[in-house]
Simulated scan of single mutants.
Amino acid sequence: MSTQKTVRQQADTVEENALRLEQEKAEQIVDALNSELANAYVLYHQLKKHHWVVEGAEFRDLHLFFEEAYEHAEEGADLIAERAQALGGVPVSGPTNLEQRATVEFEGEDVYDLRTMMENDLEMYGDIIESMRDSIELATNLGDHATAHMLREILFEVEDDAHHFEHYLEDETLVLEQATH
């Protein structure tokens, strides 16, 4: 383990950036990006949990579907974190900080029936979509068109995944198990 004690940049600070975005604007955008980053990781962990615990008649397809969805969440998170750093900020990290910064809430450690888990996921997707739209508007209004563009691309993927969840939740899917006594 490193014995280095020098802090190069404290968390929750924004330094000058080479992108020539005024520090006050960069601070607002980095704050929004850190919320989006935290949301992405809450979603990631919930989807990962569902990937691990899914069972039933549609196990294989849904196991792979959850994997694809959590990979999308992680890819988006990586882009968001790198953009926050490029703007002079420190990407939020660590489970406690992520939980505190997120505007969405993890469903908890319990395992639910498949339909409930997917409804919880779809609800979280909806909350993230609304939050990302607000962050896109903020970045656009502050003149950070590159961040707005990046978030739009991530939003497209988030909306597409949400749409797939919606399809799985249609009435004629997710085979219901009959209780046997």
Rank of each mutant, 00 (worst) to 15 (best):
D12R: 00
T13L: 03
R20H: 14
E27T: 12
E27N: 00
Q28D: 01
I29Q: 05
V30C: 14
N34S: 05
N34P: 04
E36P: 02
L37V: 02
A40S: 07
V42H: 04
L43S: 08
Y44C: 09
Y44N: 12
K48A: 12
K49L: 09
W52H: 14
E55G: 15
E55Y: 12
F59M: 11
R60E: 15
R60A: 13
F65M: 15
F66T: 12
E68P: 07
H72Q: 14
L79Q: 14
A81E: 01
E82C: 07
E82P: 02
R83L: 05
L87C: 08
G88P: 04
G88Y: 01
P91C: 09
S93L: 02
S93R: 15
S93D: 02
G94E: 11
P95I: 07
P95N: 09
E99T: 13
Q100A: 01
R101I: 00
V104S: 00
E107C: 11
D110W: 06
V111P: 04
Y112K: 08
D113F: 13
D113N: 13
R115D: 13
M117G: 14
E119H: 10
D121E: 15
D121T: 08
L122A: 05
L122R: 07
L122H: 11
Y125H: 14
I129F: 11
A139T: 00
N141R: 06
N141M: 02
G143P: 07
D144M: 04
H145M: 10
H149Q: 01
E157N: 01
E159Y: 02
D161G: 06
H167G: 06
Y168A: 10
L169F: 11
E170C: 03
L174P: 14
L174M: 12
E177F: 12
E177Y: 15
A179L: 02
H181Y: 11
